[in-house]
Design a protein around this nucleic acid. Structure first.
Length: 258
DNA sequence: AAGCGGGACAACCGCAGTCTA
DNA sequence: ATAGACTGCGGTTGTCCCGCT
């Protein structure tokens, strides 16, 4: 039958992570890589659920994460992607190297939403906000697609209201497809209220892949590991640490930082 | 200086799809 | 084939911080 439970619910700690827990988790991931989250808490000596460890790592400790506010370019990119993908934060995050879905989601809810409303743009539909009766409102969202005659029913953008009918793979395909054709003949059909669309492709092409690890920002995530940069950790993919790197981590740990 | 309210963000919850024993 | 664990995702909540009164 099935697998072993990922964690026994009893005695599992919740709430904010301590520096010591972070340290243990980072140390474990560096040593063993990202696999078997179920086993992580036990092996790393953490009284946490594996799921919690995974979240902590992906949302906060991962060394390739950028910290700090989103740049204007990133913000515009998020708006544009949201217009096409809706609340598919993971898909949006996949287009912003070093950003997590949680981070983007938070930023959307706290910053961008308000900004758009202030600009008179509905953050859900990305249409200009117009005072109109509810029944007309519903009509307008459907007629919008009709007005944009380039779109047929099979390729219409997954705006929020329609997004449930589009699978993840379909939306990925749509996004990629539209990216590659954004400078061609049908770009205007998607976004009518954003002007930054043309620059996206260039932006993404210029963005370094996450996996090469060349742009790790250690200092804000795990400052206790800062010294490791001198040893070249940022030059490696994170799934394949060698003994030398692990030694470096251990050395840093012994210094009792943080 | 203290209390309050809002903003920002980390973390949790629950669901759905996938995987595996 | 199936039950149940694992993983990923989006929504929501909790907590901390800061500015204002």
């Amino acid at each position: 039958m099935g697998r072993q439970p990922c964690c026994d619910k009893l005695g599992v700690k919740k709430g904010p992570w301590t520096a010591d827990e972070d340290k243990k988790l980072i140390n474990f991931i560096l040593t063993n890589g990202q696999c078997c989250w179920r086993a992580v808490p036990k092996l790393a000596g953490l009284r946490r659920c594996g799921k919690s460890c995974r979240l902590r790592w992906t949302n906060y400790l991962r060394p390739d994460l950028k910290r700090g506010l989103l740049t204007d370019t990133e913000e515009q990119l998020v708006i544009d992607l949201h217009a096409r993908l809706g609340n598919r934060w993971s898909k949006i995050a996949a287009r912003l190297p070093g950003r997590t879905d949680n981070e983007i989601k938070n930023h959307w809810n706290t910053h961008i939403k308000k900004k758009l409303i202030k600009m008179g743009i509905d953050p859900v539909t990305h249409e200009p906000i117009q005072k109109q009766p509810e029944n007309e409102k519903n009509q307008s969202s459907s007629t919008k697609t009709e007005n944009n005659t380039v779109l047929d029913s099979s390729s219409s953008p997954p705006m929020m209201e329609n997004s449930s009918s589009v699978t993840t793979d379909e939306s990925s395909f749509l996004l990629d497809n539209n990216l590659s054709s954004s400078n061609n003949n049908n770009e205007s059909s998607f976004i009518t209220n954003t002007s930054f669309w043309i620059d996206e492709e260039a932006l993404w092409n210029n963005s370094p892949p996450i996996s090469n690890g060349a742009n790790f920002l250690w200092e804000e995530n795990c400052s206790w590991l800062l010294d490791c940069e001198d040893f070249g950790i940022h030059d490696f993919g994170f799934d394949c640490f060698n003994d030398f790197e692990i030694k470096a981590i251990n050395t840093t740990e012994m210094e009792g930082k943080h």
